[in-house]
Design a protein around this nucleic acid. Structure first.
Lengths: 222, 222
DNA sequence: TATAAAAAAAGAGCCAACTCTAATTTTTTG
DNA sequence: CAAAAAATTAGAGTTGGCTCTTTTTTTATA
């Protein structure tokens, strides 16, 4: 007992936030981020426009909340993947990037992710920016978990700095996610190949001789 | 002879464009990109606001032109570096990234680069976006040139896919340039170390045994 | 030099995010 | 249940990028 007693005021607050986020989520998905006016969101949420500003300082701030919700709700799925990855490291990384992208697109739509990716540049220090950094750390942690598994399996040199490697792989993944989001015409296949090339090179130096991939493509002359 | 005769009309056009770009460059450097209003630019350039829009469809479009000017004017310096890089590959990459960053900051200022880095996300398909892609290709070419030199020196396996490697290094560089530009508080030293860690791992697998670095840090447990 | 073509300038106006202030309503508290 | 506290709401206003139309000026051409 003594579970924190929530007053009516607080309950209303949470309810309203829920309404606003729900409305925003639907409208963003439907009409896109830019063309959705805050007035609209307020209208659908059955709330005054000023109230939206009361809870969220920015339009981008609403997106922050949605993104946070997404990150939280999809955590278990990522975690499961990472604890039992495919046997081939390169394939495992590709698969994880694929999972991340699928999860991302499932909830927010490309235009929203564009805004999120642009936030560090347009609003440095904003909540959206900080949220992005933290999400990066989370992914890095997932990769560390994955890499440790590979180490236990003997597919990775024992003396590799897992932290640095996870950092690099996260960077590569983030870079390519950015390309995917910004380029409408990029095929998933091209992207997959690009990631493969880069991850292959990355792994080349840190795998024990016998586990090293033949590196088709990497060692082939162009 | 028969050198293209430029009419008065064309000469005026070029002159005006020069005035506008000059004014924009000064004002962006002085007051920042966001706070510089197009009206101001017009005023300083002694031109009507409507005329600015006549030559540049966007505010961002003005930035495109400035960036293009920068890329062109600093090409020789980059080219010189790349043709005679430091003996250590990792150091060479670090040095080139440093050169790129220095060149960048020399002409445009952090805030402008933020806008440029955000362009692929906010205005996909825009001139600024395309310009960024092309600049990426240029850097990749520089790296290919550098890597070929290392190959000739025997510091790189003969059968490495130069193209893929240059692509990866460019990606790493771009990623870190983005971090540098977006994070006000990041020290150049931290950044340098991060780049070093990543490039070290990258090179580990593609260098001949005897040329391989001791990889201090990479092979150390964290 | 007169006429046609092209470009620049003036100026009004749209749009949507965001701000501010002054009610009005709701919730808490004594 | 009344007074105090807190939040919602209405509504007017600001800002700056951008558009559009019309007039004026400049340049090219016959």
């Amino acid at each position: 007992m003594a579970s924190k007693v929530i007053g009516l005021r607080e309950r209303n607050r949470q309810h309203r936030v829920g309404l606003i986020l729900g409305a925003a989520s639907r409208l963003f998905a439907q009409g896109g981020y830019d063309s959705t006016r805050i007035e609209e969101i307020a209208e659908v949420a059955e709330v005054a426009p000023a109230t939206v500003y009361n809870y969220f300082t920015n339009k981008a701030n609403i997106l922050t909340a949605l993104a946070a919700r997404h990150v939280y709700s999809s955590w278990a799925e990522r975690s499961a993947y990472v604890q039992n990855p495919p046997s081939d490291p390169v394939e495992a990384v590709q698969g994880f990037e694929r999972l991340l992208a699928d999860q991302a697109m499932r909830t927010l739509g490309r235009e929203c992710w564009r805004v999120i990716m642009a936030a560090p540049y347009l609003q440095p220090g904003s909540r959206l920016h900080r949220a992005g950094i933290i999400f990066g750390w989370l992914i890095e942690r997932h990769y560390r978990r994955m890499l440790r598994t590979f180490q236990e399996r003997g597919q990775l040199d024992a003396d590799v700095d897992i932290r640095a490697l996870a950092e690099l792989i996260t960077a590569i993944g983030t870079y390519h996610f950015g390309r995917r989001v910004s380029d409408e015409n990029m095929t998933l296949d091209t992207l997959k190949q690009d990631i493969e090339r880069h991850v292959l090179i990355t792994f080349l130096g840190v795998m024990p001789r016998q586990a090293r991939p033949d590196a088709p493509g990497v060692l082939a002359r162009h």
